[in-house]
Write a protein that binds this DNA or RNA. Structure first.
Length: 291
DNA sequence: CGATTCAGCCTGCTTGAGAT
DNA sequence: ATCTCAAGCAGGCTGAATCG
């Protein structure tokens, strides 16, 4: 059975299987995800440092079965670290090959804290942006349009490629392409390991930087943002910047008024850049009659 | 002040490692 | 070879916080 045939089998039968069998060895699809596909991939990628695992839940079926490749030096669990993973969408119409992050360990870190969900998302996005800024995507997508029905998997996605059931069934994607993509993703994963794990996060300097960033107060972050804007050659008063931040904080829908050319759009763009959130910045042209 | 949201806890189920 | 138990996973329930 090829990878493509396995994927099609899972997509065709998973939802039905959930209804008819408990999530365990009795189920054919369970065995397919937990063992067959793992053996198949291990046969292709004979790497001692990579652990391959597939899961569709324990006891209970998950909505999002996954097949992951872990670098043993980074993580051996889907709950933490960065790893390659095939994720199936809830409706079983799509499967994504992605470089993704475990969110459970981050959730545990913020257990009992205020705005837990938001902080988890912010951390996932921060890591995502760091990696994207330093590693070539090799043609994989970074547009944040991975949709499977689980927010943390979606936010945690660093690079990805989508395969729809239709594409797979109609031979628009070949087995060779699937394997080639996975090989490319492994090159990215290796690069991540060399650039981030063996150096940045493990050095004292890296840890200090991380601590420093977490400790910044709103005032300090605003001050940094202001300095960034000045350094780009634009001038707004510090008061205007604070007012803009406060307005956003009060309600995330802010209307800036003023004649054209005074820098309304630019302010927002620079603000996003300063916070390293450019990838979440979209410009939507508005015609006069829409207002 | 009722409705909604959310974190925390509990439950059900299986795997797999280690003890017996 | 069998038993025990922690880990892993998702779903459900509940009380507290927040919203409108």
């Amino acid at each position: 059975m090829s990878l493509k045939e396995i994927f099609i089998d899972i997509m065709d039968n998973y939802i039905q299987e959930k209804m008819n069998f408990s999530c365990g060895k009795e189920s054919r699809i369970y065995n397919l995800i937990n063992y067959t596909v793992v053996d198949y991939l291990n046969g292709i990628f004979k790497r001692e440092d990579i652990k391959i695992e597939g899961s569709c839940g324990r006891g209970y079926w998950t909505y999002h079965p996954w097949i992951a490749l872990f670098n043993k030096n980074i993580t051996t669990s889907a709950q933490e670290g960065v790893y390659i993973v095939y994720l199936f969408s809830k409706d079983m119409e799509r499967v994504y090959l992605t470089l993704n992050q475990g969110s459970t360990s981050i959730e545990n870190k913020y257990k009992g804290k205020r705005n837990k969900a938001q902080r988890v998302k912010e951390e996932l996005m921060y890591i995502r942006n760091q990696i994207r800024s330093q590693i070539d995507s090799r043609g994989f997508l970074t547009n944040n349009n991975l949709i499977i029905g689980n927010e943390n998997y979606e936010v945690g996605s660093i690079f990805y490629k989508m395969y729809s059931k239709e594409e797979l069934k109609n031979d628009l994607i070949s087995e060779e392409e699937l394997i080639e993509d996975l090989k490319n993703m492994l090159i990215i994963y290796d690069e991540y390991y060399n650039k981030f794990v063996t150096t940045k996060y493990n050095t004292e300097e890296g840890k200090q930087m991380e601590k420093f960033r977490e400790k910044l107060t709103v005032k300090e972050q605003l001050s940094n943002t202001y300095k960034y804007i000045l350094s780009k050659g634009y001038f707004y008063t510090y008061e205007d910047l604070c007012n803009f931040y406060l307005s956003l904080k009060t309600k995330p829908f802010v209307i800036l008024a003023g004649i054209s050319g005074t820098g309304k759009s630019k302010l927002i763009r620079l603000f996003a850049e300063a916070l390293n959130c450019s990838d979440r910045f979209y410009t939507i042209p508005v015609k006069p009659e829409l207002v």
